[in-house]
């Protein structure tokens, strides 16, 4: 679908969110000399080369030793540094969970764990690398902030914002070139949901790459006379429960969408919020207790039921349950 739908947000260019991270990191490094970066042999993949070139004395190549990288990042905070670690999402979380738990989260260290190649949209590398459990693992840790921006511009803004935020952060982004549909140089407020489209019949909560799928879904639903409220949940923890409850109080039902397992991700967080406050029909878009596989990103979203068409169907199901 090459932007033929009458979407409320449009794009002229596609770019990978990891480049938003790389450019944001460089900017954060220019703004604050305490920003340092560590990478586990993935400088090119994480787009950290510009930072390394401009600040070689503040960049640490840690090799394929992720556990040591997390520990060293925690140590760097002792001395006032703001370390950003970079590797794939799989190796940023599951591989080093205990290191993050003890040396970062429990110890309340100001480490920014920056994770690329998350989710099915990683594509051809397959299930070993397509982590779909990382948001769950990270959001379960006390003291951890969890952010999953949706496009290049938002990822860049988020990267700059987390440098100014005191405390551990998990920042998740991805590999594929994706539409750039949010404003350049936007303000990024951690923990504040962004209402992108006002509507009355159903709320779609989306995070990461699936925000674009939700933008397309809104256009399809609008053409059929259904009014959608679209909320961009870039921060999964702390969750903007006020925005969620306010929107569902108006629309009466919701869809939540993310590139993650049903278990543990944004879907879970939205469900908990609704059940504990104001129960309402909620449909999940995500991966239902399975691993991914090799393929092109759009083929995988299709096969696993995560694209705009699936969101449209889920919205109709949610409305029918009201």
């Amino acid at each position: 679908m090459e932007n033929k739908l009458d979407t409320k947000y449009t794009y002229t260019e596609k770019k990978d969110t990891r480049s938003g991270f790389g450019d944001g990191l460089l900017e954060a490094g220019r703004r604050n000399e305490n920003v340092v970066a560590l990478c586990a042999d993935l400088i090119g993949s994480l787009k950290m080369g510009a930072f390394q070139k401009e600040f070689p004395e503040r960049f640490f190549q840690m090799g394929i030793s992720e556990a040591n990288m997390i520990g060293a990042a925690a140590g760097l905070t002792i001395g006032g540094k703001i370390p950003f670690t970079g590797t794939f999402a799989n190796f940023s979380t599951g591989r080093v969970y205990d290191q993050i738990r003890q040396s970062v989260a429990y110890s309340e260290k100001n480490v920014k764990i920056c994770a690329s190649h998350a989710g099915l949209t990683l594509g051809e590398d397959g299930a070993t690398h397509q982590i779909l459990e990382d948001i769950g693992m990270m959001k379960m840790l006390p003291n951890m902030t969890v952010i999953n921006p949706c496009d290049y511009n938002q990822t860049k803004a988020a990267t700059i914002a987390i440098a100014e935020h005191e405390g551990p952060v998990y920042l998740r982004f991805g590999r594929p070139k994706w539409p750039i549909f949010t404003p350049e140089n936007q303000e990024f407020e951690i923990g504040k949901a962004w209402k992108m489209i006002e509507g009355t019949d159903v709320t779609i909560f989306a995070t990461g790459h699936l925000v674009w799928e939700a933008v397309e879904a809104e256009a399809i639903l609008r053409a059929e006379g259904i009014s959608v409220e679209l909320i961009n949940i870039h921060t999964i923890k702390p969750l903007d429960t006020e925005a969620i409850l306010k929107s569902v109080a108006k629309t009466g039902c919701a869809v939540s969408a993310e590139e993650h397992q049903f278990n543990g991700g944004l879907n879970d967080s939205i469900a908990q919020t609704l059940i504990r406050n104001q129960p309402a029909p909620l449909e999940f878009i995500g991966v239902d207790d399975s691993f991914g596989e090799s393929g092109k990103p759009e083929e995988l979203l299709e096969k696993y039921g995560l694209n705009a068409k699936n969101i449209v169907e889920a919205a109709k199901r949610a409305i029918s349950r009201k």
Binding site: G71, A72, G75, L76, S107
Partner: peptide, 27 residues
């Protein structure tokens, strides 16, 4: 106490990070 420990294997990495910071800070 500057960091939690107990789950074994992590302290030397933390020391490495702190040693990096001392180098950067010219301490």
């Amino acid at each position: 106490i500057r960091i939690a420990s107990g789950s074994l294997g992590q302290g030397l990495s933390v020391g490495i990070g702190a040693a990096f910071a001392k180098k950067i800070n010219k301490d």
